[in-house]
Simulated scan of single mutants.
Amino acid sequence: MEEIVQGTAEWHALRLGKVTASRVADVIAKTKTGPSASRAKYAGELIAERLTGTPADRFTNAAMAWGTEQEPAARKTYEFYRDTDVEQVAFVLHQTIGDSGASPDGLVDVDGLVEIKCPETHTHIETLLGQAVPAKYVTQMQWQMACTGRAWCDFVSYDPRLPEPMRFFCKRVMRDAALIAELEREVVAFLNEVRGTVAQLQRIYDPQPADEAVNLRMAG
């Protein structure tokens, strides 16, 4: 079987209608009055994907294209830094929540992962100064660990536009069982809402043909 590469049509098909690690932050996003607009937007995307069988349109810009182009170099730098090999993987389903999964940037050794970001320079500089993993990525990495069963994930920020000593940042995040359990509860509830809305829309707009309904009543 041909290996599926992240970003391809086959990869998008694997993720169709499923909650993915990069979007778990949207699932748990809340405001003072309740769920956030980003949560509702994401639910709408998954509902449409399930009804149409077509992946939602993904926004791209120059910064995102840059990140994709630089990721192989960042991965090689990480392999040199850690003196290890990275195994690339397309998509890993959650072990118990079948409608969710993750696409880590690589499996490392027997119990690790790597998540690679090649951001705009000002963002990379903020990470260098703060010497910490940006909070918005912690949820993504924890969900990757939930799906893969791995114990840690190295966060990498890489920008070759800076002087060599400043190009590479790496910090390890350990598995947080309590946070993962909380995320799992939130994702299960979110997926139940998505399934319920899909079923409701199908009942309203794709009702059972009248002749089939009559036949079923007669059979009963």
Score class of each variant (00 low, 15 high):
72 P>M: 03
186 E>Y: 00
6 Q>D: 14
50 R>F: 10
104 P>R: 05
128 L>F: 01
39 R>Q: 15
143 W>C: 08
215 N>H: 10
31 T>A: 05
201 L>R: 06
147 C>M: 01
99 D>F: 03
150 R>P: 00
191 L>Q: 14
193 E>M: 10
71 E>T: 03
190 F>P: 03
146 A>S: 11
116 I>N: 07
109 D>H: 11
164 E>H: 15
103 S>C: 02
159 D>F: 01
186 E>M: 00
74 A>T: 05
40 A>H: 14
144 Q>L: 01
79 E>C: 04
43 A>M: 15
26 D>R: 11
212 E>K: 12
77 T>L: 13
67 G>L: 09
159 D>H: 05
79 E>F: 00
164 E>W: 13
180 I>T: 06
68 T>D: 14
120 E>G: 13
1 M>Y: 11
173 V>I: 13
4 I>R: 11
184 E>P: 05
78 Y>W: 10
1 M>N: 12
166 M>G: 01
45 E>H: 14
160 P>D: 02
155 F>N: 02
211 D>S: 12
127 T>L: 03
124 H>T: 01
99 D>H: 07
75 R>C: 03
199 A>S: 14
212 E>W: 08
213 A>G: 04
177 A>M: 07
107 L>C: 00
26 D>C: 05
139 T>G: 02
196 G>S: 12
84 T>M: 04
74 A>F: 06
15 R>P: 11
20 T>F: 05
170 C>P: 01
102 A>N: 02
65 A>G: 01
88 Q>W: 07
55 P>V: 09
62 A>Q: 14
211 D>Y: 08
45 E>L: 13
38 S>G: 08
181 A>D: 10
27 V>F: 06
170 C>H: 10
78 Y>K: 06
211 D>P: 01
26 D>M: 06
23 R>M: 14
194 V>D: 05
162 L>M: 08
66 W>I: 09
49 E>S: 12
83 D>W: 03
149 G>F: 03
16 L>M: 09
185 R>G: 15
162 L>N: 04
145 M>A: 07
97 I>D: 08
118 C>N: 07
178 A>I: 08
56 A>T: 09
30 K>D: 15
186 E>I: 00
62 A>E: 15
165 P>I: 11
59 F>L: 11
161 R>N: 07
100 S>V: 02
167 R>S: 03
179 L>M: 15
10 E>V: 02
190 F>Q: 02
98 G>H: 11
192 N>P: 00
137 Y>F: 13
11 W>Y: 15
94 H>V: 12
144 Q>W: 01
47 I>C: 08
121 T>N: 02
95 Q>E: 15
1 M>E: 12
66 W>A: 09
171 K>H: 11
174 M>C: 05
114 V>S: 07
13 A>R: 14
180 I>F: 01
4 I>A: 10
73 A>R: 10
175 R>D: 03
184 E>C: 00
216 L>F: 04
214 V>T: 11
27 V>K: 08
16 L>W: 08
49 E>W: 09
